[in-house]
Amino acid sequence: MKKLGLFLIVMTILASGCGKKQQDPRIKVQEGVASDTFGSNIVTKPVIHAFSALVGDRIEVTQAVTRRNNAGITELQVEFRNKSFNTERFQYKVEWVDADGFVIDSKTSVWLPASVPGKSNGTIIAAAPSAKAVDFRMNTRNQE
């Protein structure tokens, strides 16, 4: 009997996770819409979710890029990935620094909310308060 249970689990894992083509990483098809994976399959989901929570999967910044627009203002784009299965809500604050390393005093540097669904990518876009900004610092905190 135990063998049968184990066999069913292995078969489900194989059926849900194997032999699938890598999807376009720009497109996220959420659970309930996409075909089952380890994380969404009814049998394996509790185990996978519990393991993810146990290891503390959360937000991971994947890339931060800047550019200057035609008005000389630096724009920032931060891309991040939510590694957990739950929607992660947090706040972020961007401070801009001038060529001398001084933080530019600005009312735009306030805590702003952000959120991203489970196992999805998110983007934060910010603009510098003046053309004097050459670099940035970003901080995050838990959504209260």
Binding site: N69, T108, A127, P129
Partner: peptide
Amino acid sequence: ASKMVQSLLG
């Protein structure tokens, strides 16, 4: 205000 200004300057 922060979002407005960032949108305008950006």
